[in-house]
Design a protein around this nucleic acid. Structure first.
Lengths: 263, 263
DNA sequence: CAGTGGTCTAGACCACACT
DNA sequence: GTGTGGTCTAGACCACTGC
């Protein structure tokens, strides 16, 4: 090989910090570099919104060529962990700063887009510290009875209550989360989580169902009882697929719809 | 430049088959190559499931380096238009013969996966040639009154009717589509479209709502009237974003859910 | 074994943003 | 101009597949 890979003898593509394996588990160099950059992101070496070192710098740091770093960053960029800006640099992705304001919210008005409706009004109904029920504990990888923060709120667009949601957050990571914070922060909730708690949501899975509104749900969303509502159950994860939020939303879909792209 | 780009004088990155523009509209070489490969795919130069020429061959054909072809194919692969198989070649993606059988169907049983339930049973209720109503015409980019094929069917999993859907297809492209074809084909409907009509669905958008079952829908899905159902309206496109199918599905979500990944 | 995609490098040049 | 990401090349070698 014409290279001296990091953390390994010169004997074929290396496995960072580990001995080279015969053939079975082969990990390309750029994957190792990607993992190293990921570690730095996770460790908070660069904060959300900040620039990471240039490709040249990283190439020098890891003793690989720029092209290898480039491929590593390409993947991080494809996973939305990092944002490239030509001529400026590569930046740690953040839920703050506009454009991607509603990155995880797929609800769209039937005509126009979410931005054309202005920001959502948030009404926090509840924000309490409690103990995890079995189901919540399992989802958040906690033990039953561990501390969790539970939030219930309504989001309205143009004074029309549209989303009723419950959030469950691990109590450890979200010590001191208050209703005022939930309601008062300007910008997406996940941006607030970054700023106030250093928690970055990176990926999520949603399970969607159609359900009928019960009495209290109907009242809060100002629809007739038994109205059909979209139930959206979301598991959100930080780095390394660590679960950090369970959220159950009920969406009115009389004037909005959940939009999805398939390819 | 160290290259001789295709279809252009040696004066900066070329625009294939067109004059080079000053600076405003700049298209990288690999994008041009990608477009050329796309044309061949579209023209049916290689059939679904077949291998396309090797990277070296394409590089020679287009007079660019292998790396440039590689980047073009990378994007086609990311868009699921093509599938790479190390050591074997690059193949035209197909809805047939795959473990990706349900590429566009996001409905999952609450436990297990769709495959564990065996193939869906199809019951074709209707398959008729008719004229496009205004709304359907607009969606399919036809004129109102143009011929369309309309299909209504029920999909059942394990003898439980779960999906009721209506399909509208442009009459021109789907001449002779019969109920027997819709019901009898072994494999995904979109695979049948490839084989029988040479139509490859490449991308789709879905709008999802919660609705209440009316009397006839309830009967067909064997649920009580007014039961909440998931309404999934899908626009499916072939190459070049040409709309080829409008589909409206009603999903029972008492034992299944619509699964989505966010990142 | 040859042929394919996959990785890695080194160097050149281009487009873009700031100063 | 300088520095950043973005493109392109040419050549080497690695991993996987099938003859």
């Amino acid at each position: 090989m014409a290279q001296t890979p990091p953390f390994s003898a010169d004997s074929g593509p290396a496995t960072a910090e580990h001995a080279v394996q015969a053939t079975p588990a082969f990990s390309p160099l750029y994957q190792q570099i990607k993992a190293l950059i990921l570690q730095s992101l996770q460790a908070g070496e660069w904060k959300p919104g900040e620039a990471i070192p240039s490709e040249m710098d990283l190439a020098a740091r890891f003793r690989v060529s720029q092209g290898t770093v480039r491929k590593a960053i390409d993947e991080l960029s494809a996973e939305n962990l990092v944002v490239r800006r030509q001529g400026k640099g590569t930046f740690v992705a953040t839920h703050s700063e506009q454009h991607v304001r509603y990155r995880f919210l797929k609800l769209m008005p039937d005509s126009g887009n979410l931005d054309s409706e202005g920001p959502a009004q948030r009404t926090v109904l509840e924000c309490k510290r409690t103990r995890a029920m079995a189901e919540v504990a399992r989802a958040l990888a906690l033990r039953p009875g561990d501390a969790v923060v539970q939030v219930r709120r309504v989001l309205s667009f143009g004074a029309v209550p549209t989303i009723l949601e419950d959030l469950w957050l691990p109590g450890n990571a979200f010590k001191g989360l208050s209703a005022e914070q939930m309601a008062g922060y300007h910008g997406p909730t996940y941006a607030m989580f970054e700023v106030e708690f250093g928690v970055r949501m990176v990926r999520a899975e949603e399970k969607i169902r159609a359900v009928a509104a019960d009495a209290s749900q109907a009242a809060l969303l100002q629809v007739p009882q038994h109205s059909p509502l979209l139930s959206v159950e979301r598991m959100a994860y930080t780095y390394n697929d660590v679960p950090m939020e369970l959220r159950r939303g009920l969406y009115r879909t009389d004037t909005h719809h959940y939009r999805n792209e398939l390819s």
